[in-house]
Amino acid sequence: MSHVIVVTSGKGGVGKTTSAAAIGAGLALKGKKTCVIDFDVGLRNLDLVMGVERRVVFDFINVINDGIRLHQALIKDKRIEGLYILPTSQTRDKDALTREGVERVIEELKQEFDYIICDSPAGIEKGAYMALYFADEAIVVTNPEVSSVRDSDRILGILNSKSRRAERGEPPMKQHLLLTRYDLERVAKGEMLKLDDVVEILAIPVLGVIPEDDAVLQCSNNGMPVVLEPKCMAAQAYMDAVRRLLGETVELRFITPPKKSFVNWLLRRSA
């Protein structure tokens, strides 16, 4: 059975696209055939983050409106077997996303893929609604910061009331918290909301905590999903999240700052 998962947040800039790319790539590395769809019509970026921007010919909107076949628009990742990207349009606007069109594409993808990851735009307008409407599960990407937590709470309300599952009175969508840009040192100093605070407020289970890591920017600079840099903390944290998504029990890492011993200091310098 295939799973449709929306990666959403309400607030912009919290790491939705980075997380959709990392988790999509991680699922493919775990042998699941995965397609990541960009729902941010007019502000296409998943292609750039995943390094396939020069290979876009047709897009999601062409498949919905212009009679282009799905397989003409899907881009196969050259690094990871079983990973595909469905880019969106950079020139059209969100009205080009029709509910019937999105449904048709998702149903067709379900025939072939194990996981369909919907990368939602920021905000609570049409693109965001379309990205979450058909989802079975949601990954709510949140930064430990007041505006992001408030917006995540708002999105949780929308997931519970505006999705197809909610409209049909089906069992509610499974919701997961993905806390990103977690700065361990600032948390330790009491300058940043800690994981427990965010969990207490949003009251949904934790899928993962991604520590603030310079490697994330370097990977997006290079058009590489973070998980392809397996030594970095963020990649390990994303892979842990992927394993939890697949049902494994994995203990949380990177939630307390590393000890500042002389040996660690030496190791850090030589790395």
């Binding site: 937590v149 709470d153 309300g157 948390v187 009491g190 605070d197 207490e200």
Partner: peptide, 22 residues
């Protein structure tokens, strides 16, 4: 700490907003 203040402010505002947005 400012984190504690952030948590408290969030709990207050969400207690207000949830009945209106849910």
């Amino acid at each position: 700490s400012s984190a504690a203040r952030a948590k408290e402010r969030l709990q207050v505002i969400l207690a207000v907003e949830r009945p209106l947005t849910r």
